[in-house]
Design a protein around this nucleic acid. Sequence first.
RNA 1: GCCCGAGUGGCGGAAUGGUAGACGCAGGGGAUUCAAAAUCCCCCGCCGCAAGGCUUGUCGGUUCGAGUCCGACCUCGGGUACCA
Length: 848
Amino acid sequence: MSRYEPSQSEAKWQLAWDEADVFKARRDPAKPKYYVLEMFPYPSGRIHMGHVRNYTMGDVVARYKMSCGYSVLHPMGWDAFGMPAENAAMERGGHPKDWTYANIADMRGQMKPLGLSIDWSREFATCDPEYYGQQQAMFLDMLAAGLVYRKSAQVNWDPVDMTVLANEQVIDGRGWRSGAPVERKELTQWFFRISDYAGELLEALEGLTDWPEKVRLMQANWIGKSRGLQFAFGVLDAPEGFDRLEVYTTRPDTLLGASFAAISPEHPLARHLERHDPKAAEFIAECRRIGTTEEALEKAEKKGFDTGLRVRHPMDEAWEMPVYIANFILMDYGTGAIFGCPAHDQRDFDFATKYGLAINAVFEAEDSPSALTEAYVPMKSERVRYIRGFAGAEVQTGDDGVSEAISFCESNGIGRGVTNYRLRDWGLSRQRYWGCPIPVVHCPSCGVVPEAKANLPVKLPDDVSFDQPGNPLDRHPTWRDCTCPKCGAAARRETDTMDTFVDSSWYYARFTSPHAATPTDAQDADYWMNVDQYIGGIEHAILHLLYSRFFARAMHKTGHLPAKAIEPFNALFTQGMVTHEIYLTRDAQGRPVYHLPEDVEDGKLSATGETVEVIPSAKMSKSKKNVVDPVNIIQAFGADTARWFVMSDSPPERDVEWTSAGAEAAYKFLNRVWLLCDRIGEMPADAPGEGDMALLRAMHRAVHDVTQSIETFAFNKAIAKIYEFTNTLSKAQASGAAMRDAMRTLAQLISPMVPHLAEDIWAKLGGKGLIVTAPWPKADPAMLVDDTVVLPIQINGKRRSELSVPKDMPAAEVEKLVLTDETVLKVLAGQAPKKLIVVPGRIVNVVI
RNA sequence: GCCCGAGUGGCGGAAUGGUAGACGCAGGGGAUUCAAAAUCCCCCGCCGCAAGGCUUGUCGGUUCGAGUCCGACCUCGGGUACCA
């Protein structure tokens, strides 16, 4: 008998894999390729259980596909630019670069013991000049291709720190450090023309059949295609240049229910009034105190300012309406101006009620019209009766009403039907140091000039300090001052850096040739793209994934990716979070003091015996101290236990709660497998036994079920099947040869999840070579069929009895048998059943 | 606010519209042991002595049959364009 000692054997097998170089991705024309990618991590410095779960899932897929004969690419890198590095520099001193690379080294050191099948030779960080230099080259190509432009946009401005704030740095409308009320400020910034691709990005979602439906839905809603009418109101006594007010509406059928027009505080007309009307200026200033986020804007109280201007209804010369500036109208959507129909829009209804405007119903419910105490907003597909309609039938659906209204307006010269998208262009400028510099130069005579490609990468300067707020690049004279690449005159470098979403929008492509002298290598990209399986958090469902889809198209347009790669991720899987209970005690003031799980035992603090409050599981976070450090778990139980547990307990798309009991159970199971292997290994190969056939059938059943479960990402079910098979095997009385065969197969089935233990078993039972390179077992279909089935008998839908019959017994014969069943006879009491339903091979239902 | 999910025993969960609770944890009983740990075997949704009844967040509907489909709601989670 030997002991299961993961600390020794895990290191041993990791070395063996390294020496055999089994995870090196090679372009092999003889094999099909498989590219599996997990969303790369931000180098915070510590891996957490969420990482372990994410990378174990990818590892299971990678190892399984390798066994199935694929040439696998499974790389790892670091999403290394971003705010936390600058925050660390500000709080603790030091340099973002040093902090980041030290974190990367730490995290790599924590990840390696997990035994992941990663090709580490492809590792890179997005803050490597080698990587971001290629990103700058692509930016210049995209600029030349017309995919990038500059325009004015608003940012959160901290007037005390004199710095731009990210949305998460604005707390209750105030700067997180200064506490000063945040203002909106306009800056000229760079944008990607993602909205040019809105229609295509929407339509192509249909082809992403291996993406979760919820992600496709979220993206479709985000892109937000709408069909509507754009038309102009005539403005009475208009200020010069504003005699027409263009509005966009998705409900032109409600035009005769209009009672006001409203414009965005950023609308040119509002801007004009701001300069000439102090009251308007005051209102607009108030609007600007609301944050820049959609959430803040939507949740803010809806307010308007009556400009005193009036517009004429396009269908009635005599009909005049007031024009408001309203805080909820977005300048980025439509024309930045709307008309309000209070009867059929709740927001307009509230607005009209507040400002005493008319509420005129345009249509009413077909059957039961009722008084308007709130806006009547039926589904557009519902039929309604138009009482102020002007186009189409009196009774029609909202959709038809809209179409008819657009046709009517077009033929009467009132406006034109237009298709609009909610999706806005992607602002990529960041007023920060730790990001990829935007490679352009501002020249007094040539204007905005792209940096020459020969001068790339435009490297971040190292000699910067973070002792004052703001972007250090802005106050770095030798870096900022440069010469114009076009005319050679003195010029200034762009000091904005790129949004880190740019970095993560093409790393998957860079992994195919991570050190090429161009952004991608055509042959490598052609062989390895697309990512066959992408795995990551649902929190990236919209932004990261949509930006990546756009970027792949932009890369194709600029010659950096083949046409087949414009949808870069063939299949997507979104995994849940790892959660843990939260433990806390209270200090003298009643404030919570959080405690690490490892310091709590049986609901009490180990040190003092004080009882802790327990809050239900939440996402692991440092501030709540409900974190379990994978490094501790690996030291205590081994990587295989950590891997087994994160895969076993919950369906992978759902959150998993880390419990120490669960981790111990995983460890116990692996021990059991180890001992079982020992026992079988000691059986003489020719030891006689019975039940070889039964064991063989169970083995094929297990191979089939586990394979199916892995293929469908049901890892928890795969593990349940492995438990069942292990139970069967340990109770089996089969011959030595059959037992060994079954045990080796068991080792293969567990090998994607617990690869180290699997290698140990394989080696002990005489498997050939490394299990990691052994071909995946195949289930024989003939071994999977059962001859008899047990049919449950229901009476009025409730299970009352059962019946064992040959698998293919005709329904008529089953019926006869059912009517002889004791329970059925008793319930029928001599009467005939009303109905007898026989679902062959499944169930019988007797209706009485 | 808006968009998208999720809710099943004490706990994590399983279930092509067809036996609700597979598998695991916790718990109970037993074997082994001088004893304990470890290991092995058995029991285990709730109410009830039992017969039986109830049970998949709540309420309603479709169906011979609903955890699964439809409608309304409740709670929790993700996103909301400068967190990554």
